[in-house]
Structure formats: C-alpha cells, structure tokens
Design a protein around this nucleic acid. Structure first.
Lengths: 123, 123, 123, 123
DNA sequence: GTGGTCTAGACCACC
DNA sequence: GTGGTCTAGACCACA
C-alpha cells in the first residue's frame, strides 16, 4: 500500500506521513474512518513498529489523525484541512527557492520546473 | 566578512559555502584569485576550523574552487558556472515543490511565492 | 440508557462507571436495588461485554455495587457515599492543579474555571 | 538535577518535560541559553537517551525549546510564554473537575484543595 | 562532542 | 487485537 524508498535521504517516517496525507487527500481514507493499525502497516511495509508509530504520532500532533488507545487510529474530522501542514511545506519551498536565487538560478528556470512538476499526473 | 546565523537550521558549513558562492558571483572573488586561508576564515568568523575545511572541500568537489597544497585555495577559472551547484539547488526546489504538490498546495501558490522571492532585492 | 462517546479519550469502561455512579447519585438506581445485567447493558450500548464487566468489577471493588453470583449486581446499601470514589476523583484534581501550578498558571485562573464548571447545570 | 519518580503513572518523559518547563520558568534556564545535552541528562537521571529525546522533541514541538543538530538544544526566545502549554494544562484541570462534580464532590472541596496546593512553596 | 533516525524487543492498559 | 511507554543499542550528519 505504501511506497517507501529506504535509500532516500528523506526519513522513512516522513515518507510514511506524506503517503498517508496523500491517501487522505485522495479520499482513500475518509474523515473519522479507521486507519490500518500501526502494527499492520509495519508488517505490510516491513518497517519497524516504532517508525510507523513515529509517523502516526506526528500526524496526530499536526491534527491530521487521532488515536484512541486500545481502539485504533482515525482520520480526524477536519481531515487534511490543516494550515500547519501547508505552512511547513511552503516554508520548505521558500527556503529552497531562496537558495536557488542566491546560487544565481534565474526565476524562469524555477517557474518552468514547477509547471513541469504540476503537469505530471499524481501516482 | 561572512554573515553566519548560528541559530539557523541550515548547517553552518552550508552557510559558509553559500556565502562564498555568492561572493564569487558578485565578483568579490574573481576567477583564479586566491581565497583567504581556512584558518583566517575560521578566526574571522569564530567558527571551528573543521567546519570551514568542510565547506572548502565541498566547494572543491563541486569544482568552484581548487586548492594547491601548501599554497592555499583559489577560485577556479570557470568560477560559479558549474552545473553541479545548479543541479543540487534545483534538486532541492524540485523535492520541496513535489512535497507541496502532495500536500495539496495549488500550483499558483508556488508560482506566487517564487515571484515574490525574486522581486526582492538581494542583500 | 448510557451515554457513551466512543471518540472520547476517556476509556470506555471509565465512562460506563461514571454514568452508573451518576445514575445512582440521581436516585435512578436506589440502594440495594438490582442493576441491569452486564449482558443487557452490553447489548443496549453495543459495547463489548468485557468492557462492561470491567466497569462493574471496578465499581464492586470501590464498594459502590455488589454482585451475587448467578443473581446479578446490586447497588450497595451505602450507595455512592464511598470515600474511595471521592479520593480517586480528588487525586485527579490534585494532580492536574499541581501540574497547572508548575506550568505557571495563577491560582485565580483555576478558581475561575471551577466556578464556571459548577455554575453549569448538570445534564 | 531532575527529580523523577519511576513508579508514577505519569510517563517519565512527561515528568522530564514538566521539570524542564519549571526550570525555565524559574529562570534556571534562560531564553536562548543552551540546555544540557540529551545524553548528559540521560546519564544524570539514569534514564534512556530515547526517553529524554522524546521529552526534548515534545518541548520543541510546543515551541519551548529548539535544537540544532550537532550543536545542542536551546531555550526558545519566547521561552515558556506559550499558550499551547497553558491550554493543555487547563484542559486537564477542566476534565478532572468536571469528573469531581459528576461524582458529587461539592465546589468548596475543590476550591479548598486548590488554595492548599497554591499555598505550598514550590520545591 | 551534539542531535536525528531506525531497529528490536519488552511491558502496559484498553477493547 | 489496539495504541503508549521504555529500554538498549546501532548508525548517521554536523561541529
């Protein structure tokens, strides 16, 4: 179900977080519905329980999901409509573009790249 | 000479690299001219010698500077026109924008941000 | 009969306990009268039998009810006037207020909150 | 330096968090000053590095401290003046007092308890 | 030395 | 079965 690249420099728990966010955004997991258990995700992905737990806890801290001990983890009713998540993502873009600008990369290159990324179909 | 923010999350050696690249780009350091020694930079900035060393060897690996053992470091003749530096910067932008897309941020938001960054005067 | 919030962080067996205590306090269940059976409560609420069993045995341990094997559970003659229940509740209040104090919240804030809670009508 | 009760039902990382918050509030750790390293705290307390790490990460998520990889952990410039921390503490008080009210404990008992707690000198 | 990530495996409370 | 806590120990990047 999840597609993890162990060789990426992006931490595994971040990849898990991102994929779950995308699945919620795509409607695969709907608000207030139950998510697969931490352990089952760990089994499916072959990752350690603690790594998945870390991803779930982070998502809970961001208000994307909530977990009830002994009962399971659930998509929060507001789902992905959380400003905090957006802010973090935009902060990253900002930092990387500012860096590109400092390195002397012209604005058109950046815009071209963005248009290219957004024209790709979501996997 | 260098403007380092010790409280930034950007690694210090990265900040050193970036500032040197910018100084080359602005013409303060010209192709084939000698750079200040690692030790003098360390003294000036109050940073650890190892940190500066790391920045210089990274720059050498990127072909931006070259060092002659016993004589010092010099701006390479091609200077900053090195594809590697550009590629790394663009890879960062790519990763952050792909992440933004996954989080559901619309293309226009990214473009707006870029135009805003590039409209600012360089410090 | 019982009003359970499955999405609450309060354990379900705790909610069951609390509601039964309140019903006794309100006189719905009188001292020495028989309580509905564990199974019927489980059926009514749609909760797991084990969860109800846990609530009942906790209440018995606290001396609020007693059970006669094969015949059912009954409100104890002393009813809710049991020190143990009070003590547990007060211990919780104590812990949370001590925590608030540590966090730097002034005494007046706590008192104000309490007055506000007690001025609300009981549901 | 820290005073941990391993037998408490309050998670150890919570106790660590609370004690650090108190030390910041008392001015022992000042805004922007460096905190003892995660490892040294682990050594001093005899606790596992990961447990201390958990406490520090939580504090960072709450904006109380910030950490710079390779450099250390620091009290954030706003220090403890964080509404989130206060809200969580008050939510706890609210829940416990509401519970006490349901159990039939009179308002005066709660107020008396609070006055007693706040009259005690801070350790 | 510092913090950050990851694994492995234990024990607990709750359902 | 579920999530939550804790320990032990490994490896990494950064200073």
């Amino acid at each position: 179900m999840l597609n993890i690249d162990k060789r990426s420099r992006v931490p595994i728990y971040e990849q898990v977080k991102n994929q779950i966010i995308m699945l919620i955004r795509l409607g695969v997991f709907k608000p207030n519905s139950q998510l697969p258990s931490i352990r089952s995700v760990a089994l499916d992905t072959g990752l350690n329980v603690n790594t998945i737990k870390r991803a779930f806890s982070d998502l809970e801290a961001d208000g994307v999901i909530y977990s009830l001990p002994g009962r399971g983890s659930f998509v929060s009713s507001t789902g992905i409509k959380n400003k905090n998540i957006f802010k973090k993502a935009m902060d990253e873009v900002k930092a990387s573009v500012e860096n590109a600008k400092v390195k002397g990369i012209p604005q058109e290159e950046c815009i071209k790249l963005i248009e290219q990324i957004y024209s790709q179909k979501e996997e």
